[in-house]
Measured scan of single mutants.
Amino acid sequence: SGVNQQQLQQLMDMGFTREHAMEALLNTSTMEQATEYLLTHP
């Protein structure tokens, strides 16, 4: 699906929903950016 499943699982383990985590990974290129994205786009 174009996203790193390991990163997706890590974000879900942090408490984010699958949909939200996927959106973040699709819009960013690193785990750090994805986390930042999730925190700034709740």
Rank of each mutant, 00 (worst) to 15 (best):
T28P: 01
M14A: 05
Q7G: 06
E19Y: 14
S29H: 10
E32W: 06
M22G: 04
R18E: 06
L26W: 07
E32R: 05
E19I: 10
N4Y: 09
Q10L: 13
M22H: 07
H41C: 08
E19Q: 12
L39H: 14
F16V: 05
Y37E: 04
T17K: 14
E19V: 10
M12E: 05
L8A: 03
L25D: 00
T28L: 03
L26G: 05
L25R: 00
R18K: 09
Q5M: 14
M31A: 03
E36D: 08
Q10A: 12
Q6N: 11
Q33P: 00
S1G: 13
S1P: 12
Q33S: 05
E36C: 15
M12Y: 03
R18H: 06
S29V: 08
S29D: 14
S29N: 11
P42K: 15
S29C: 09
T30P: 00
E23S: 08
A21M: 01
S29W: 09
Q5T: 11
H20E: 07
G2D: 10
Q9I: 10
M14Q: 05
L26D: 05
D13N: 14
N27S: 08
T40P: 03
T35S: 05
L26M: 13
M22I: 14
Q7E: 10
F16E: 02
T40Q: 10
L8G: 00
Q33R: 04
Q9K: 13
E23W: 15
T40I: 07
G15R: 02
M14L: 11
E32N: 05
P42C: 13
T35W: 15
N27M: 14
L38P: 06
L38H: 03
R18N: 04
H20R: 15
H41L: 14
L39N: 14
M31V: 08
L39A: 14
L25C: 04
L11E: 00
F16L: 01
Y37T: 05
A21Q: 00
M31I: 14
D13K: 13
L38W: 05
P42H: 15
M12P: 00
A24V: 01
Q5K: 14
L38R: 01
T35K: 15
L25Y: 04
M31D: 02
S29P: 06
N27L: 10
Y37Q: 05
T40N: 15
A34N: 01
M12S: 03
T28K: 03
S1E: 12
R18M: 09
N4W: 10
G2F: 12
R18G: 04
L25M: 06
